[in-house]
Design a protein around this nucleic acid. Structure first.
Lengths: 250, 250
DNA sequence: CGTTGAATTGAAAGTGATCAAGGCGTGTGG
DNA sequence: CCACACGCCTTGATCACTTTCAATTCAACG
């Protein structure tokens, strides 16, 4: 179980998760860092399970998760919900809205959260900085890679593998913004939310989790996950972090 | 801004599928159209089932499908394959490679195809044109929306709905590049390929197709699909074209 | 200490997977 | 011009991962 040199930082405050994330591509000049840090300064507090934006809306600003968790989701006519992405600090909710105009899905907080609202013109200012523009472009493309990986997860892996894979992905992403402690991190998801992300029922999620616990692979309770044997979890779920395009030892 | 009454064109040649596609956002000046048309001029011919690019590669050019079909896919350790996207004329294979460096999935032709190789510097020239840059940005974001829609398809719809949904999506996309005739289009997929895209077995695909045929919904044989009752297929599969962000009557 | 949302547990039913064999169409070679 | 081969489509029987439906236990909280 490799725990190479780099130990996770402490939880960053303000917009620093975003900075940490964008700097995985390339270090940014101080000026850019300051600009990004400013984004998170007057973020709004939101309660858990509140819609940040809904399908069909055409906002004139972009949302950034500064603190807490959120999820993209789509609702089906029969009321079923499919979560399409989990958003953690440093993630943009709707970078695409400046071009696509209308939201084709909704986004809601999962926990209490701080969400920054960034007006369109401010985004344009940001994009004018080559380093930032490139980093945002990178973030968008990684989001796309994550979506492809979810398709594989849902389409071809059984529930046990899929849950393990999701835990590995979130571990790497959380670590990348300095929000892990050894091999644990806050994972404030209900079993139903996990199921909605993987296309399985909550009772099945429950059974799989119990099996993982009984095998000593993980602990998962009260919103926190600890991976006791990361390597084993990676192997069991066929996880390969290459699609996250982070040049970093896990 | 709907394009009323517009009947599908005949199969476009050269890079015109790309032009048709990019002009769904906004009409392009003649100069841009010519630039784009030139891209498809000396495309390479490829046989069916040939890799265009493979996971791990770091090409210095971008691929564009000029004619024929291709698919993105990932292979699992046990040999299972998950198709992540179908690529039709006018689709870029790997626009992201300039930023992400390394491919995290592979792409292969499904049919004989013409594939254009566009060097990196040429892409930069293209991106320098604001209209084209915006259109490429739009295309990337729509690709992302399609991925989200597939997640819903695979995660929450049963095989019957999922297959119907896929047929509707491809119908709209094919129509958008002028490759439909009434409610039919070339759909050169084997039942196994359909299954690999939806995470189901070819045997099951076969049974579902038979049911759809027996209900008079569709005809699908020898690489061509005809949808006899498009509205019914949309309803049965919960298809809503909004995520394709095409302002066009179907 | 009752309320409430989430986690558990049990039993029964299903959609889709597996495994295997047979049918068909087309292209190639004798 | 026909036989054979190969890839793909079909069909049948059986198996199993997941879903359903329902009820129970927990844990946090006012």
């Amino acid at each position: 179980m490799p725990i190479p040199g780099l130990q996770p930082e402490h939880a960053p405050s303000g917009g620093s998760a975003l900075i940490a994330k964008l700097e995985t591509v390339a270090p940014l000049p101080d000026e850019d860092r300051e600009t990004l840090a400013a984004l998170g300064e007057n973020a709004r507090e939101m309660g858990a399970r509140r819609n940040i934006i809904r399908e069909g809306e055409r906002p004139d600003h972009v949302h950034l998760i500064v603190e807490g968790w959120a999820a993209r989701y789509k609702l089906l006519p029969d009321g079923a919900r499919q979560i399409t992405a989990f958003l953690i600090p440093g993630d943009f909710c709707d970078l695409h809205i400046t071009i696509l105009r209308e939201m084709d899905h909704s986004i809601a907080t999962l926990t209490r959260a701080k969400v920054a609202y960034i007006p369109r013109d401010r985004m344009e200012t940001l994009s004018a900085r080559p380093g930032i523009a490139r980093a945002l472009w990178w973030a968008t493309l990684v989001d796309e890679a994550v979506l492809r990986s979810w398709i594989v997860n849902i389409g071809r892996r059984d529930a046990y593998e899929a849950i393990g894979h999701l835990m590995c992905e979130l571990y790497v992403r959380m670590k990348n913004v300095g929000l892990t402690h050894d091999h644990s991190y806050e994972l404030p998801l209900t079993q139903e939310e996990v199921g909605d992300a993987l296309g399985i029922t909550p009772v099945h999620v429950n059974r799989v989790l119990q099996r993982m616990r009984s095998e000593g692979l993980i602990s998962f309770a009260r919103g926190a996950l600890t991976i006791h044997d990361y390597q084993a979890l990676e192997n069991a779920s066929g996880f390969n972090p290459n699609y996250l395009h982070i040049d970093q030892r896990v």
